[in-house]
Every structure is written in structure tokens, then in C-alpha cells.
């Protein structure tokens, strides 16, 4: 299993992960080796076996529809890298 430089760049873009040039090649090699090791999984017979998303039996846990106080706005905004009044400041989303 070898993945190409193009695939590395495509995946990085999906993840919105910036990579330096040296990282692209290193990740290409490492991911290829790791995926190679995982190829054996394809041979496991899973005909008719349902997938498990998580290991507990609980399903559709409901919370009471009750108004509860949230954390104070200032506490939340205290960690914001950029703040303007009571908002997170971001670059323009639409150009």
C-alpha cells in the first residue's frame, strides 16, 4: 500500500492541516508503512457482521427539557484569541 504525494495533500486539505514540504514526504512514507501493516484486515471474514460504533448498550439518552444556566459569557470569551465586544473575532468567511 503506497500512497502518493497527491493523496497526502488531498487528505491534508480535507483536514485543513497545513504541512511543511518536509512533512509531506515524511507522512507519505509513514502512512504508507502503517496502511501496509493494516492491509491484513481486508482478509478478515466479516460477512453479515454488523459494525460496532461503541461498546455500551445505552441508546438515545434524553435529557429533561429544562432551562439551565450556561457559563457566563466572559468566562467563555476569556480564552478567545481575538475578541470584539461579546463576539469571537474571525477572518471573513465569505469573500
Amino acid at each position: 500500500m503506497t500512497i502518493s504525494r497527491q493523496e497526502v495533500l488531498h487528505i491534508a486539505r480535507l483536514a485543513r492541516l497545513g504541512l511543511a514540504e518536509a512533512e509531506v514526504e515524511r507522512l507519505r512514507e509513514q502512512l504508507s508503512a502503517i496502511l501496509e501493516h493494516f492491509a491484513a484486515l481486508a482478509a478478515v471474514d466479516t460477512e453479515g457482521v454488523p459494525p460496532t460504533a461503541q461498546s455500551i448498550e445505552l441508546q438515545s439518552i434524553m435529557a429533561p427539557d429544562k432551562v439551565q444556566p450556561s457559563l457566563p459569557q466572559d468566562d467563555i470569551l476569556a480564552n478567545a484569541p481575538r475578541r470584539q465586544e461579546d463576539c469571537f473575532r474571525v477572518k471573513a468567511v465569505l469573500e
Binding site: 500512497i3 488531498h10 483536514a15 492541516l17 481486508a42 478478515v44 459494525p51 460496532t52
Partner: peptide, 28 residues
């Protein structure tokens, strides 16, 4: 970064069934 890349790859179009779904079945 390596794990974000590995996970994004396993979940991406064309590979989801072969990796993520397959792994969930073997998990069973």
C-alpha cells in the same frame, strides 16, 4: 498530525468502507 491524517484518510470518500467500516465490523 500523523493521526489526524490517518483518521481523515480512513474516513474519506473511497476508503470509508475498506477501513473505517471494516474496522468497526472487526470490532464486533
Amino acid at each position: 498530525k500523523r493521526r489526524i491524517m490517518l483518521g481523515t484518510y480512513a474516513l474519506s470518500a473511497g476508503y470509508y468502507d475498506a477501513y473505517y467500516l471494516k474496522a468497526q465490523k472487526v470490532r464486533t
